[in-house]
Structure formats: C-alpha cells, structure tokens
Simulated scan of single mutants.
Amino acid sequence: MELYFLGTNAGVPTLQRNVTSIGLRMLDERRALWLFDCGEGTQHQILSSPLKLSKLEKIFITHLHGDHVFGLPGLLSSRAYQGGTTPLTVYGPPGTERMIMTTMELSQSRLNYDLSIVEHTGGVLFEDESFIVESALLEHRIDSYGYRITEKDRPGSLDPAKMAEYGLKPGPLFGRLKRGETITLDNGDSLRPEDVLGAPKRGMVITILGDTRPCDNVQPLAINADVLVHEATFLHDLADTAHEYYHSTSKQAAEAARAADAGQLIMTHFSSRYKDEDQLQPLLEEAQSIFPNTKLAIEHELIPVVHRKSES
C-alpha cells in the first residue's frame, strides 16, 4: 500500500499547494485505489500522478467543507472518460448524497457506471475478507470524521522444508493450503495449513483524520496505527487560533501520534500562511521534537506504508 497526496493545503489552493485529497493505492492488495476527500482540482492533480481513475473503488469524505468536496462532482462526472466504468462507492457524513445528487441533477450529468452513496455517523463502514474500515466523529465546526483502515492478517508463507517433509511439490495443493484449507495426502493423512505455514503476516493499519482540534476520538482511531495522517494547520504559537477555528497545531499532531504509539506521522492541511516547503520546516521540527518519525505531506510524493515495528 502507498499513500499519495494530491492536495495538502487548508482552506483554499495556492500556487504551491492544492486543497485536500489523499490517494491510497492498493495495487498488490486488491488492484484498487481509494480516495480520501476530493477538494477542488483533484481530478486535475490525478492527471499529473501515477493514480488511475480506472482503479478507483471507494471515496471516503471526511466532512462537507468545500476544500474537501468541491472537486467531487467533476471527478464523478468525468471519471468514465479516464477508463473508470466499474462500480464506485462514496462514503460520507449526512448530506453527502444530497450534495452529489443535486449537483448531478442540475448539471444533467449522466454516469455510465454504478454509483453508491453511503452516509454514516461513524462505526464499521465496510468489511470484507481483507479489510475493515471504521470511522468516528472528530471535533470541527461541522461534523468531521476520521477513518481507520485495517488490513486483516494474511496467511504466512509456505515453509519449503516442511513441505518437503510431507513429500509435497509445487502445484494446486500449495494454493489450497495458502487459502486455509486442510488437504488429504496420498497416504490418507490430513495436512492442516498451520503444519506447513509460517506465522501470519500482520496487516497494515492506516488512520486518516479529517479536520479536527484535539479530541477524545483521535486516540482510538489512531492506536497502534502504522501511519497516522493528521492535520497540522498551524505552528503551536498559534494554538489559540487553531482552537478557535477547530484545527490542530503540529505539536498537537505529534502528541496524538505519540499517545497512540503510531509508527509514523504524516502532517498535512497546512495554512496558506506557510508559502512553501522551507516555511513548513518549523512545523516539521516542532513535531519531530515530540515524535521523531514525522514527515510533511508533499504533493505528488508516493509514500510506501510500512509496519510500525519489524515483525519478529
């Protein structure tokens, strides 16, 4: 899995940064792309990226402020022209469906793919054999949600030495064991997957928060996450301003990552007062003094998701 930041600015776009949108590329896991928020200009940013709308499977909206959703109608309308004809599901807070459908109706837009819209107020939003997506309410001027994406543990690798002990050679039986099936050997004995598989491979956990000031639901969403994506709109010398506008500082983002024992913190949603990467360095230094494994979200940078601690 890889994160790709399409927009990292707060409020309005600038010449240096676009407004919020984050791609989660999951080509190895499910040959899919998930998108988190869709600020104005997102589809244009995608044209300059390695992301493909033909792979887009789900969009998760954190909240309905314009810098997080004004790019959504355009992207939905033009997705098919970039090869996106497979079903698409949009998850968002109450009001998401009305916003999308009103825009589509008034613009007389026609979609040639199946669009599902799931409104929620938190909880488990999606689960299949590979992933669970949960959400919880944060603290912002309007309802804003954070998302926790948990990849389920995967079977361990086949142990060649153990397979040889049972006289097994590469073939269909290998696949059945990897899928968790018990097989019958030529001598009639049963062979369980756990007899020849290594330890399960721990799945990744990614937490992506919407706009928020510090609140109780941050930690349960972020606990033990391999990667925490947290807004850091201001330096901490503007903590009063951040609180007034329901945002967080870089210090508060770092404190959240440390309290949750996250593996890595990626800060985003920067105030336009910080014009370029050089002016963002004080935010990075402030956060790293509390949580060293912190980085700034840089647009058009592909960030691999790695385990927070090495597997034993």
Rank of each mutant, 00 (worst) to 15 (best):
G198M: 05
L115C: 06
L221I: 13
L106E: 13
P282W: 10
W34H: 04
P50E: 05
Q281P: 06
R213N: 08
E119M: 04
R17E: 15
G146F: 01
Y113E: 01
K52H: 07
I183N: 02
P220E: 15
S54Q: 12
Y245E: 14
I303T: 04
R202F: 06
D189S: 13
D211T: 13
L137Y: 14
E127S: 11
R273C: 01
R192F: 14
E285F: 03
R308F: 01
P13W: 09
E301F: 00
Q219T: 15
P172F: 06
T150K: 12
F60D: 07
M104S: 14
G180H: 07
G123D: 10
V196Q: 08
L138D: 03
H247Q: 15
P214A: 02
G123Q: 10
L228S: 14
E255G: 04
S190Y: 11
A254W: 03
Y245N: 14
I208H: 01
G71R: 03
Y91H: 15
Q16R: 11
D67A: 14
A199S: 12
A10T: 10
A287I: 12
V12Q: 08
D159A: 09
Q219E: 13
H120W: 09
D114Q: 03
A260G: 10
H236K: 05
L173P: 01
L138T: 04
L56I: 10
K58Y: 09
G95H: 05
G11R: 10
S312E: 10
L173Q: 01
P170K: 11
M101S: 15
L283N: 11
A239G: 02
A257G: 04
E311M: 06
F270K: 10
L265T: 02
P13Q: 08
M163S: 00
E285Q: 12
F291W: 01
K295F: 08
P193K: 14
S272V: 00
H120L: 07
T233R: 06
L3D: 08
S248R: 03
L24F: 11
F126W: 14
D189C: 10
R176Y: 11
R308C: 03
Y113W: 09
T62L: 04
D128A: 05
G175Y: 11
A287T: 13
